[in-house]
Amino acid sequence: MSAEDTPALSGGPLRKVARVILLDPSDRVLLLHGHEPGDPKDDWWFTPGGGVEGDETREQTALRELREETGITEVDLGPVLWRRVCSFPFDGRRWDQDEWYYLARTTQTATVTEGFTELERRSVAGARWWTCRELTEAHETVYPTRLAGLFRRLLDEGPPERPENLDTEIV
């Protein structure tokens, strides 16, 4: 069964999402530091990205979200690496998502948050470039949960020939 055929846990449609594995020239990955609005102690790290709007393609969504969440516009967008369905509570509701993870590269490493939505202003505490080693040794929560191993394999083997379907994650 494909992600498109999978019903959302809440009974509604899955939210279509584009996420980005953004690498800099040193092969560091950019992650955002998020938290539950109103509770900065309930925190995690995650990849930039968000929901498809209107008739956007997922590629257009990936580039728009990068621009809005990081200010980074000089991007070489590559292939879809991974797909996953996930479900998680956030800001008082359950989010059921069909996420596609795109590989991208940039030489632009400074980030700005001028394009944040109101919800992002209340729930994103910053951004950080991570080496593979730092990510592997991290004790923080990172989504997707297998990102350290996936990142290591990406650096060692390059992108997969076709997108890999990751296990469904329900938090």
Rank of each mutant, 00 (worst) to 15 (best):
V20W: 00
K16Q: 15
L23W: 06
G92A: 08
R94H: 13
E59L: 01
Q108S: 12
E169W: 15
L135Q: 00
T145R: 14
E169M: 10
L30N: 03
E68V: 04
H139N: 13
P13H: 13
T61N: 12
S123W: 02
H33F: 07
V124I: 14
P13V: 08
T117M: 13
R15A: 11
T61Y: 07
T145M: 14
P48A: 09
T6N: 12
R153E: 10
L119K: 07
E118H: 09
A125M: 04
E134L: 03
L166M: 06
T111Y: 08
A18F: 04
D5F: 14
A110H: 08
R19T: 03
G38D: 05
R128C: 02
E68W: 00
E157R: 15
A138P: 11
E65W: 04
T131M: 09
F116W: 15
D27G: 04
E169H: 13
P144I: 02
V80F: 04
R94A: 11
V142G: 07
A104C: 08
L155Q: 09
A3C: 13
P160G: 08
E69Q: 15
Y143E: 06
T6R: 09
A127H: 06
R84P: 10
V80Q: 03
L63C: 05
G51Y: 04
T111I: 09
D5W: 12
D156I: 11
S26R: 12
T73I: 10
R15N: 13
W45S: 02
E99V: 05
A148M: 09
H35I: 05
E69C: 01
P144Y: 03
D39N: 14
V75T: 05
W44N: 05
G115S: 02
T113I: 11
W129N: 01
V80G: 00
G11H: 12
T106A: 00
V52Q: 14
Q97M: 13
R122I: 05
D96S: 09
V75S: 01
E68Y: 10
P79A: 07
E65L: 06
T107L: 03
V52G: 03
D91K: 10
R94G: 11
E99D: 06
W45F: 05
H33V: 01
L77E: 04
W100S: 09
E59K: 06
G158I: 07
V20K: 01
L14S: 01
V20P: 06
R28F: 08
S123I: 03
A18G: 08
R83T: 15
V52L: 14
K16S: 14
K41N: 13
K16M: 13
A3Y: 10
M1W: 14
P89H: 11
W95R: 10
E161S: 13
E140H: 00
H139D: 12
L9C: 10
S26K: 15
L22V: 00
A138M: 03
Y143K: 06
L150M: 12
R19E: 12
